[in-house]
Design a binder for these strands. Sequence first.
DNA 1: GAAAAAAGTTGAACTCATTCATAATTTCGT
DNA 2: ACGAAATTATGAATGAGTTCAACTTTTTTC
Lengths: 204, 204
Amino acid sequence: MSGLREKQKADRQSRILGAAVSQFRVSGYRSVRIGDIAGRAGVSVGTVYNYYQTKGDILIAVVAMEVEEVLEAGAAIVAGPPEGVQVAILSLIYGYYDHSLEYLSKEMWRSAMALSIESPGTRYGMLYHDLDRRLAAQVTDLVAALQTRGDVTGDLNAQALGGLIFSNLNQNFIDFVKDDEMSLTVLKNTVADQTGPLVRLISA
Amino acid sequence: MSGLREKQKADRQSRILGAAVSQFRVSGYRSVRIGDIAGRAGVSVGTVYNYYQTKGDILIAVVAMEVEEVLEAGAAIVAGPPEGVQVAILSLIYGYYDHSLEYLSKEMWRSAMALSIESPGTRYGMLYHDLDRRLAAQVTDLVAALQTRGDVTGDLNAQALGGLIFSNLNQNFIDFVKDDEMSLTVLKNTVADQTGPLVRLISA
DNA sequence: GAAAAAAGTTGAACTCATTCATAATTTCGT
DNA sequence: ACGAAATTATGAATGAGTTCAACTTTTTTC
């Protein structure tokens, strides 16, 4: 039987991830060397590559953690949206934003986004894309839920509206992580300004 | 007096850019080596770095060319928009899209976008960001022009609406360059679907 | 027009992600 | 429990962008 190998494997994997995350937060993704991670985790460089195919793969593990939590919190809002179209939609969006820097720094987000754009066909890129897709779907779900409840006019295409709102919140988030000086407050105000007119138009 | 030096400099600069662009188109940005560019341009590796600070800087020169042309074509539409809000807005957007692959391949766009996100503070990143900003401003200008003409209800915030439309067209363009299989037609249809409901709502 | 100064060119050296042949460790068959 | 097989760890070697000290070429000075 086994057990030893399994345990050692899980152990190393988590040591590597832990070493990586803590160093990413402090020094930034780019300036952390694979050798640094290996050293801190007590393994060799080759072993790091045994557990993660590329440096970027270590980053996606963190991004995935982040987004999974955010999706879970969002599901609660979709299940029982607060009163008011504006409030409901913004509370979903603000939920995303407020959680976004829990595990990742802006610099880490930038690297993650850059990787997902430059290498869409890799395992990394596909995973990131899938997370994005699920977020967009959740926004659409919320719009549909508000329609069902009668808060949003029923003759509108929920899919299209959801896509529109998501692309806006996503683009604004990109602008946010690109600017180290920009605060969460400014981000929220910008998206509220841009979503606001739309929300007023679609309210039943 | 000078003259020789100036001429040689301009000569080398254009030889380097020409060598780079033609090789980027054929082999893709990533697989072209600085040494390849240098060789084709008849200079040394070091000289390439004398004219462009990084490999990415060579790419931005091409992106800038692309976007400048697109902005010029867009200005004509803003100056005299065609009849109909939907038609006017979509003709601006389609103008951007149709021109987008004139000098750049999808792969080159991906690399350019990745660089601009990962390094927003560099000369490269700031130039790219500025091009983006000018495109967004042009969309806003069009909305304002349509408002002035009375096609769009005047009580709406043109700035916010422009931002919303731009973020949507930009996000859809990102999805387009990330997917090598996606056609321009599909891109246009998607953006028309998402912008359509909005346009109907804002038409006076 | 020659020598000093300025500007530009060069390619070997450096850094860092990634690979790969070899060595070490764990598991399995008997 | 022992040797063969399978799995995993290792770190030196590779490849590519970038830097830099020495060398050339052009310009300026007298």
